[in-house]
Design a protein around this nucleic acid. Structure first.
Length: 306
DNA sequence: CTGGGGACGGGGCCC
DNA sequence: TGGGCCCCGTCCCCA
């Protein structure tokens, strides 16, 4: 029987597919170790070697580096290696199933893959046909069932028995690690996506420079608006008074001046303002009046009246 | 103090 | 993925 039956700590947030991929990664690493230590004796040739020798995929694709196998998604450019890795794992599993080695409890020379599959497959319903006999309890709580866990996430302290499990957790499930991935190197801000981070970094690098005065901006359209201050171009015109503006936001604020009911209203005194900044100023004055005169309880909040 | 304009920043959405 | 655009917002200045 396998020496370790419960040291695979699964993340409850991982999907079935993720758990399966994590299991494949750990098995591949184990297979690598086995292949390196075993001698190629013909009569005792291991099943993994058979898989290697017979696999057309192994000949069709270059053997992936250990790094690309551990971080298949991180090295996304090595797509063929990743495809090879998945195919190789699937092929290995099929060979093990068909040879029924895994069903023999006395196969002491069986590889680490064998034991790994026996201990891991029950958690994957898709492979229940071959491994349903080795009953596995529900997924253990990572915080309570840490047995022989060597790989701990430094972001959320969850532990995993395999490096593959840990890397998969860090890459897709650990919020702390994901946040670290998209953290600005110039400030402390973090973002949920690479695109948002790149957009933010532009505010530090300021790649758009004005050819007239040399002032730099984060985005082209900001530069475009700035250039209008030099050219005098005002493409946004008020339909009521025909006054033109260089900035659409300023036109919008201007349109408020034509309205009797302003967009921003003090909820206490019902006074309306065309801009949030004016309402904020009003609020500050009200608070100051409150501190000096408790009878005046004009508390305003920034709520939209329209 | 208030109201308004000018200039600009940043997140989100769409193509 | 990046650019254009929209929207909301802020800050500063001036009458």
């Amino acid at each position: 029987m396998s020496s370790t039956t419960s040291n695979i700590v699964e993340d409850e947030t991982m999907t079935e597919s993720d758990n399966r991929k994590s299991f494949l990664i750990s098995n591949l690493l184990s297979a690598e170790t086995t292949l390196e230590t075993e001698d190629d004796e013909d009569e005792n040739i291991s099943i993994e070697e058979k898989c290697q020798n017979n696999s057309k995929l192994h000949r069709a694709f270059p053997r992936p580096t250990s790094t690309s196998m551990i971080f298949p998604r991180l090295i996304s450019t090595n797509d063929f290696s990743y495809l090879y890795y998945l195919s190789y794992q699937y092929f290995t599993m099929q060979m093990l199933k068909t040879s029924q080695i895994s069903s023999s409890p006395s196969s002491s020379s069986s590889s680490i893959i064998n034991s790994s599959i026996k201990k891991s497959l029950p958690s994957t319903p898709t492979s229940s046909s071959s491994c349903s006999s080795s009953s596995s309890p529900s997924s253990p709580n990572p915080t309570t069932s840490i047995i022989n866990s060597r790989y701990q996430c430094d972001g959320c302290l969850k532990s995993y028995s395999t490096f593959g499990g840990l890397s998969k957790h860090k890459q897709f499930h650990c919020i702390a690690q994901i946040k670290k991935q998209f953290q600005c190197k110039f400030c402390e801000k973090t973002y949920n996506s690479l695109g948002a981070l790149k957009m933010h970094i532009r505010t530090h690098t300021l790649p758009c420079k004005c050819k007239i005065c040399g002032k730099a901006f984060s985005r082209p359209w900001l530069l475009q608006g700035h250039v209008r201050t030099h050219t005098g171009e005002k493409p946004f015109q008020c339909e009521i008074c025909c006054r033109a503006f260089a900035d659409r936001s300023n036109l919008r604020a201007h349109m408020q001046t034509h309205s009797d009911i302003k967009k921003y209203r003090c909820t206490k005194c019902s006074k309306t303002f065309s801009r949030m900044s004016l309402l904020n100023k009003h609020t500050e004055n009200c608070l100051q009046q409150m501190t000096t005169n408790n009878t005046d309880d004009c508390i305003s909040t920034a709520t939209f009246s329209i």
